[in-house]
Design a protein around this nucleic acid. Structure first.
Lengths: 213, 213
DNA sequence: AGATGTGAAATTCTTCACAGCG
DNA sequence: CGCTGTGAAGAATTTCACATCT
């Protein structure tokens, strides 16, 4: 059962929306409603839900709670999975603050920074370690995903260490492409690339189509 | 002459790499070299360069300087284009600091925040205004692109104002999909979505394939 | 009537493979 | 040769359109 990249992205968006609707008491939803708020087509929603194997009914649409549960079990079969963040600079701190503000099911369980000054401190509720403790801490907790917010010239080196320490997925904020083994998945959030891309499309055609990331 | 989204992303990456190489004195480059460092195939590189209309020579490859110039004229025909940032919270400040550190050809010419306390201040070299001045400042300078780093519950409202004030492209960091007219291009940098996506792909197949954003 | 589920078409994007040139 | 440029094939993704159900 293989789920394409794009579908995973959209399904995550659906879930976020569904949680809000569920909290607001909505019980059922039609594909065109979900499509409307998320900026995709109803056919796309139906195809996506078909891909993850969820079935609604023509009369009633999809059950909000059931769909959330289905997405959860499809996307997050593991419980209590944690992530780490490496690079407690301005950007890293901003993200720690952001994550601290929401009860995520992917909590940041530890942060690391080269600056030994930061070791031992709590940054927005997250324990900060020196980079030298990286392997030790990762060996204790089984963490598969890391958030990389170090400067560009340190990113490759840190990524290598993370991969050696067993990390299998990276969210890379540094403005470089990482060389990693094929079994490691990397998601690039490249701010300047995004900015330049938007600057390009802001003139000319300008389609409403919009990708998540 | 229409350039697909994905191609634009990659071409921006090529340019960044080419600038480094150019600064290091490299004069020519083959598709497979460029492909290697950016994690794409040589055929992809050639196709992309064909798309933007740049031609190399089988014997010598591509001229680094000439290719940079071609990309510049393709992607940034306008000179002195500036962007604004809205939302000078932790995340906004982090980005302002990041942008201040590099001589970009897309300088952040102004920042805005609801907090009137911040108005008038310089944040990492960028003038900060109250949100109420948004229309005035945008009317003075012709800015087409905005960086949106406000909390999710304010994002739609701010986006509406930005669009009304003439903004045609948005980089949205808030965790919601924006409703904008079709002529406005939005790029979403959704951190939690990225994280959850990586967490999903970190197990199972785990292809090396990696997208920029 | 108005939804879903889904083959099949359409579209978009990537890779192949090879002619041709220096 | 080894590389570029590119038609054509191949893959992946999205959309259409309609049978079907209530």
């Amino acid at each position: 059962m293989k789920i394409p990249d794009r579908t995973v992205e959209r399904v995550i968006l659906y879930r976020r929306r569904l949680r809000t609707l569920h909290a607001a008491g909505q019980v059922r939803i039609y594909s065109h409603e979900l499509a409307g708020v998320e900026g995709v087509t109803p056919a796309q929603v139906r195809r996506d839900l078909m891909t993850i194997g969820y079935t609604g009914s023509p009369a009633k649409g999809y059950e909000v709670a059931g769909l959330i549960a289905k997405i959860d079990e499809t996307l997050n079969p593991h419980q209590d999975e944690g992530v780490v963040l490496v690079g407690v600079g301005r950007l890293g701190k901003a993200f720690l603050a952001y994550f601290a503000g929401q009860a995520n099911h992917l909590p940041v369980v530890a942060a690391f920074d080269v600056d030994p000054e930061k070791a031992g401190r709590l940054v927005h509720g997250c324990r900060c370690h020196g980079l030298d403790e990286l392997e030790t801490v990762l060996a204790e907790r089984s963490v598969r995903v890391a958030f990389l917010t170090v400067p560009g010239d340190a990113a490759q080196e840190v990524a290598d260490r993370l991969v050696r320490a067993g990390i299998r997925g990276l969210v890379n904020l540094a403005p470089i492409r990482l060389r990693v083994p094929p079994e490691v998945y990397v998601e690039y959030l490249d701010i300047t690339v995004s900015l330049e891309k938007v600057a390009f499309f802001a003139r000319r055609d300008a389609r409403a189509a919009a990708r998540s990331s």
